[in-house]
């Protein structure tokens, strides 16, 4: 078990290998399909992204509503492959870590190698488990997208497995 503090440095990323079990601590951003589309629309119009993406982590997730006395609802990962078309450009802009579930395509793997970044797999369907790891939730942008809004989370002991390491090795 490896405990990691976000944001991850390139040295830390380099030291991680596929199948390593990690626990994330600190801040990460949440974006899925429509938030990626909106971010691309900003970039295409030469506008800034809603957050400084360099060295950051994006978690592919869309939560269920928070019940009373909770800050967020169920919040497990969504299928990463749907974000494959978007990821290389964001990695080129300095995104360091992607977190989701399931395999990525060749373009993403090549971009991971080029940018020395990393892909972590969270455990699909485990939304109640991940709920217990979230300490703070902040909406950053695209509020109108409802469950697909761009969020910033503070997480503690957030469990993942290294699925594609910075050398392009993959568990899939």
């Amino acid at each position: 078990m490896i405990n990691l503090e976000l944001p991850l440095t390139k040295d830390i990323i380099k030291s991680l290998e596929i199948f390593d079990e990690v626990r994330l601590n600190g801040e990460l951003y949440v974006a899925r399909d429509q938030a990626h589309k909106e971010m691309f629309s900003l970039l295409d119009n030469n506008k800034d992204l809603p957050f400084a993406i360099k060295d950051q982590a994006i978690y592919y997730m869309g939560p269920s509503p928070a019940p009373n006395n909770f800050i967020i609802g169920s919040c497990g990962p969504t299928t990463s492959a749907r974000m494959d078309a978007f990821s290389p450009r964001l990695l080129d802009l300095g995104l360091n870590v992607m977190i989701g579930k399931g395999p990525r395509n060749k373009d993403v793997i090549n971009s991971i190698i080029k940018n020395k970044s990393i892909y972590l797999a969270a455990f699909g369907g485990c939304g109640a488990l991940y709920n217990s790891k979230i300490k703070k939730v902040e909406t950053i942008a695209f509020d109108y997208l409802g469950p697909e809004a761009l969020l910033k989370l503070t997480v503690e002991d957030f469990p993942c497995i290294v699925a594609i390491d910075s050398r392009g090795n993959s568990v899939y």
Binding site: P63, P67, G73, G76, G127, A128, P147
Partner: peptide, 9 residues
């Protein structure tokens, strides 16, 4: 906790 097992209900 009554939090749905998966966020995709």
């Amino acid at each position: 906790t009554k939090i749905p097992m998966c966020q995709d209900t």
